[in-house]
Every structure is written in structure tokens, then in C-alpha cells.
Design a protein around this nucleic acid. Structure first.
Lengths: 230, 230
DNA sequence: AAGTGGTCTAGACCACCGC
DNA sequence: CGGTGGTCTAGACCACTTG
């Protein structure tokens, strides 16, 4: 174990056991460097992880303070649906439902209003059962190749991920009562709960794609595990 | 703007514009240091951010490779419910429903099976409307003070966050059809969708608390924004 | 075996910001 | 203003891992 990891573990211990209580200030970098017998840079290396996890806040002149916890933050990973299904040990299935030029009711924010659009609907199945209903807009100004591509063989999800870069993402998670389209394609009763992930990606300021992914609530959940080191 | 930020921006540009396409290798740190006219440490500083965002992967000897994107990851922050409601401009309300010693059906994993437990149910309101139904187990071995605390004035959520450290968290997000308790307390129809956050925290190996937070689907969603730097 | 990223040092200087 | 964290350098050595 490296020096900075030992120091980080010791600092974590002092924070969680409230030897350094929430709201208090830590010693300066130089004091800590002297205490642990390392260079200042090594203290900074250990500190960087604590900052990233939100356990301490640092400001010039004010020093380093133990954060008063007011939120839980965790990193959430949403895999490509095909990989997710295969990883669960199930058989993956895919069906294109529609692909047509023009807009749809999806674009609530209006970011795509003036752009040439491709509207795609498709279904992802797990062992033959509908797992995700994908409803997507693609901005043909950002992805001209999409206009001529045949999405029967490969889902737009995978095609875009391979082909199109982005620089910003907005993701929304929510629960909804299934409308008639969701109910029909997901083979559930209208009004029953669906887990919805909506995601819009941009490349600089150019909107690239907006997608709404709906899942039957009994098949889908998201789990994240956060361990503060080791 | 600092040197490492300029370099990071330039590297990001080369990745998003596929000058360095997915799967390809970047030049060595020393080559990049020479190209940009900085020390190797500055290249490492810029690279650290790209690694953290998952844009590149680095391995000794193998070098630095642009990640083939196979998932979207983003950091999701779940604030304390009171702060969330106040931040929305609404009036916060709180009501304790029950607090009793002993277990409940909540603990599916069995982590709390042999521990002395406190079981708490309460309700958080936004402008008088039920916003979150909180159903919680507290391990009295981990938090002995909880046994004598009166949760009428302050929700267990806030009390625990202030008082009790943790070192690991597991969070599960899912949609559910409201059962009769959820429907009654949230004042929605049984079977209508609820957004559920379930969270278990530990201090080292000791389970601390397990909580299930249910929200009416029309009041609640989670949004995350990710911008790859400036 | 050798090349790559990872750690660590010792020091200089910078820039923010609270007092 | 002064003290703190933040950036940057030049170099040494380490340790992983691929060919």
C-alpha cells in the first residue's frame, strides 16, 4: 500500500470517527506533511480523493474543512441495454418499430424544434419479454449518416454510441404510469408503473439525440454501491 | 486558465472529434509533455480528469487508450428531503407516524436480522402534500442514542446525517405500484406509480440504517447534468 | 526484459480570499 | 496584507504488464 493510501485511510478514520468532526478545520498541508513524514505533494494526493468524495471542502486561506453532510452522492452507471440483458444471463432481442423523418411529442424543451429530425421507436427484449421501449429523436444536422442507416439490424443506441461523440449529457430518472403506447409495447396494463430514463446529449451546443427509455417496473432497477476506499 | 486545463481541453477536443478515435492509443506522457512544452506532471494532471470521466483508460506498459463507450456514467446526488423541498420554494412539513422497537418486513437482505432495531415511519410534505413516505430501520448497536431520541421534532434522516458516520452506501432506485400503506400515506390510489429510493449505510461492516423512501411519481424525479469541462 | 504509467520529493511561485 | 491551497517543475525511482 502506498504512502498516500495509508494517509488517506488515516484521515478517513479521523473523519468517520469524528476525531475531526464535521465543520472543523484540518491542519495545514505542511503540518500534515510533517506529521506523516512525507512531502506536501503526497498529502495533496491523499486529500484529492477526500475532496472528490465530498468528505472535505478546501478553500484558499480558509483551509480544509470536514463537510457537514447534507446529501448522498453516488456515481450511477447506465449500461447499454444489450450488454445489461446479456450480463443478466438472458437472451437479448431487438425489434425496430418505426423510423421516420420528422418530430414527435418527445421534445418538451424545444431544443430540437428547428432541426431536421429522425424519429425512431424500437423495443429491446430479455428472453423474449419486453424490457425496454426506446423512443428517440436524432438531430440529422449532428448525425447526417443516420438518415440513410438501416436500424433493423442494430439498435440506434449502439450505433450512436459507437459513432457519435458528445460533450454533455442530461439524464432524468422518474416513475410514470404507462400510457397506451408503453403499455402496448411493453405488454403491461395501462397505468401500471414504468421506470423511465430520459437522456439528451449534446456536442458543444448542438443537440445530438434525445431518448426516452421505458422499462416495466418489475424488470428494472438501478443499484449503486459506494465504498469510501478499500 | 491554467496549463493543465488548456491541455485537457485540447485532449478532449481530439477525443470528441475523433482525431484520437475510440480504441486508439495516445502518445506517451513524455511525448505529450514535449509537445505541449510542460513537465510530465502537468500532463498527468490533465489526464487525471479524463480518466475520472471515463474517457480514457490507462495501463502500465499498454499505454493510454481512448475508451470505447459502452455505458453512460453520471454522478447522482440525492439531497436531504427537507432541503430539496425548501429549495423548490415550497413549505416543508414533517409528521412522525410510528417509532417502535423491533424489526419489519423491510430487511430483505437479512443484514439486520440479529441486531436490536428501531423501526420508524414518517412522512415529509411539500406545501402540505405528501412528498415522501420514509420507512426506516436503525441498528441500535450502531446508533444506541437513537433508542431514547424523540423523532417528533426532527426527522431521522436529518438526525442521522448529522450524528452518524458511515463508510459505505448501497442505493437502489426503482418504480413500484403503490401498496396500501404507500397509497394511504401518500394520498394516491393503490397501484399508481411511486418512485422508490432504498438506501443502506454501513460503518465498516456494521449495518447502520436501512431506509425506503417512496415518492408520488408526479412530484418526484432525479436530474443529473454532466458537462465534460467548460 | 523493457517500456509504460504511478508514486514521491523538494522546491518555487502563484492566486484566491478571509481577516 | 498574509496565509492557505493550487500549479508547476525536474528528477528519481518503483511496479505493473505486455510482448
Amino acid at each position: 500500500m502506498h504512502a498516500y493510501e495509508k494517509i488517506r485511510a488515516e484521515m478517513l478514520h479521523r473523519i468517520t470517527r469524528q476525531i475531526w468532526p464535521a465543520g472543523s478545520n484540518l491542519p495545514h498541508e505542511e503540518q500534515l506533511a510533517a506529521e506523516f513524514g512525507v512531502a506536501r505533494g503526497t498529502i495533496r494526493r491523499a486529500m484529492a480523493d477526500l475532496v472528490q468524495q465530498g468528505l472535505v471542502e478546501r478553500r484558499r486561506k480558509a483551509g480544509t474543512r470536514v463537510t457537514a453532510r447534507s446529501a448522498h452522492s453516488s456515481t450511477l452507471t447506465i449500461p447499454i441495454v444489450r450488454n445489461e440483458i446479456i450480463a443478466s444471463g438472458a437472451q437479448y432481442g431487438y425489434k425496430l418499430l418505426a423510423a421516420e423523418k420528422g418530430g414527435s411529442a418527445l421534445d418538451m424543451t424545444g431544443d430540437f424544434k428547428d432541426a431536421p429530425l429522425l424519429h425512431i421507436c424500437c423495443l429491446h427484449l430479455s428472453d423474449g419479454r419486453p424490457y425496454q421501449f426506446e423512443d428517440r429523436l436524432i438531430n440529422l444536422d449532428a448525425v447526417p449518416d443516420a438518415a440513410d442507416h438501416d436500424f433493423n439490424g442494430m439498435s440506434p443506441n449502439e450505433w450512436l454510441v459507437e459513432k457519435v461523440p458528445y460533450s454533455a449529457v442530461r439524464t432524468i430518472l422518474r416513475a410514470e404510469a404507462a400510457d397506451s403506447a408503453q403499455a402496448r409495447y411493453l405488454k403491461i396494463r395501462k397505468g401500471s408503473p414504468v421506470f423511465v430514463i430520459e437522456r439528451q446529449t449534446r456536442l458543444d451546443i448542438l443537440p445530438v439525440t434525445l431518448v426516452k427509455m421505458s422499462h416495466p417496473s418489475d424488470l428494472f432497477s438501478i443499484t449503486t454501491q459506494t465504498s469510501l476506499f478499500d
